[in-house]
């Protein structure tokens, strides 16, 4: 009997710690499938962030380093410069990448650092219990914006993909979403292409993945997926910002 669905080899066979309805697990699987399909698990080094995915070095079968909050692109730079022939990726959330680590991600992109970043945007700090993120939407209630995010007090959410796509060193920038099967398939395609762009040496590649946080959003998993569609996508439009035409 043919096996039609199996655990990717690049994913360790352990149960993950993520909350019910969280999309991290699925995104991990997409990355692992890509490592399998490209046959690069043995030559890839990943960098774990600070945030809910802090210990995803337990979940990926490739070599992993765990970085300080926001510093994953710098750590990845160090690794890539030592092993230019290897594939290096970072996996970062929105607080990590777009607040404390803004300088690191901007400059890794500006240098055209040949690394791939999987950027999880769920508009909230999950691990530290639901604080306002740089990507939290206007009006969004969080533990540090209890009256809703007010632009006059807290400014506006950062559109990371749009911002990074202005940098010449960023070769591939795409925003995808996890809210339904079709989009999950698109997400995998984008992640795969981002890794291939790195392999071809075009420069920095990033995929921004719109994701859920049912626990801190105070929604059910299904409601959370709907919220991506209804609230996030209108502000964070999906699509490729750069590098769609690159040959890989």
């Amino acid at each position: 009997m043919a096996v039609v669905f199996d655990r990717p080899h690049a994913l360790v066979d352990v149960s993950m710690h993520y909350c019910p309805g969280c999309t991290h697990g699925t995104i991990h699987r997409l990355v692992a499938e890509v490592l399998d399909e490209l046959g690069i698990e043995g030559t890839t080094i990943g960098v774990s962030p600070v945030g809910c995915a802090y210990n995803n070095y337990l979940y990926f079968n490739c070599d992993m380093q765990q970085a300080a909050h926001g510093r994953a692109p710098a750590v990845a730079t160090g690794i890539k410069r030592v092993h230019p022939d290897k594939t290096v990726f970072t996996y970062q959330g929105d607080g990590d990448l777009a607040a404390i680590g803004t300088a690191e991600i901007v400059h890794a992109a500006a240098r055209g650092e040949k690394i791939t970043t999987v950027f999880i945007n769920n508009a909230i700090y999950g691990m530290t219990s639901g604080q306002m993120a740089p990507t939290s939407l206007v009006g969004q209630v969080t533990t540090t914006s209890p009256y809703g995010r007010k632009p006059e007090l807290q400014g506006y959410p950062i559109k990371v993909s749009e911002m990074l796509s202005t940098l010449t060193g960023a070769a591939f920038v795409e925003r995808v979403s996890m809210h339904d099967i079709k989009n999950i398939r698109n997400a995998k395609k984008a992640i795969k292409k981002a890794f291939q762009v790195q392999q071809k040496g075009y420069g920095f590649s990033i995929v921004e993945v719109l994701s859920t946080c049912p626990t801190n959003w105070g929604k059910s998993p299904v409601e959370s997926l709907k919220l991506i569609e209804d609230k996030m996508i209108p502000y964070y439009p999906l699509g490729n910002f750069k590098g769609a035409d690159l040959e890989v």
Binding site: I45, V47, Q65, A67, A68, R71, A74, V75, A76, T77, G78, I79, K80, R81, V82, H83, A103, E104, V106, H107, R111
Partner: peptide
Amino acid sequence: GAFVQAESEIAAINMLYGAAGAGARA
């Protein structure tokens, strides 16, 4: 080898983290 002018001291020490973790003398 590689010389990288980092965007900050913080980035530089974290690049060192990555390079040392990747087995290099850095």
